[in-house]
Design a protein around this nucleic acid. Sequence first.
DNA 1: CGGAGATTTAGCGAAGTGGCTAAGTATCAC
DNA 2: GTGATACTTAGCCACTTCGCTAAATCTCCG
Lengths: 102, 102
Amino acid sequence: MPSADPEERLAALDAVCEALAHPARRQIVLTVHFRGGSMSAGDIAKRFAHAWPTTTRHLRVLEAAGLLAHEKVGRSRVYRLERARLDVIKEWLAWFDRPGGC
Amino acid sequence: MPSADPEERLAALDAVCEALAHPARRQIVLTVHFRGGSMSAGDIAKRFAHAWPTTTRHLRVLEAAGLLAHEKVGRSRVYRLERARLDVIKEWLAWFDRPGGC
DNA sequence: CGGAGATTTAGCGAAGTGGCTAAGTATCAC
DNA sequence: GTGATACTTAGCCACTTCGCTAAATCTCCG
């Protein structure tokens, strides 16, 4: 269910759009999805050419946008995709399915 | 119809995502849509707090991403929304509707 | 405890973004 | 042509982004 507070929804859209603006971050989100919805930070980092700390930062951006969440498992951190968060984009796109005409 | 060349489609996704990452640009696209799909640069600029050249630049980014196109009409430039271009995002989001599981 | 593995934090530098003002280019009206 | 209207281009500056390496942290194993 979308948040009721319109300001919060705008902020969410903002964060999600900015997070997905970077190709590496779109790739991370897709990768996690196709690996079943959750992956450890190391597994994610291994799949990218960037240095690990660079990937860590991308993960933080995605998490701040609410697209990812993590939990500690032993000495690993497992990131889980918050698929529902992608809905804010769908909602935005839906505006264009209604004909415009002031 | 989506472009056949996968590289071109990736580039398109890239450009569109980056273009829509900025709130002002999302707003421009929405505004043009609700004004019937086309507006002059001046009408667009008038609706924003930014200085006109700033809006011009946003328009150029949106046009480079293929979300807007313009034609000259007298001394005005009329920008038209290319609604179909938004489909590259829908296509990307569609990946998440198929269950992941390597 | 000591050490190795997994991951983040800190901090740097190059490059890009987004705002502005001022100046330029068309086009129309007289 | 002259002047006003409608925009864009050029150029500047503050700030952010994104890559890196080096150092810290946290957790398990023996």
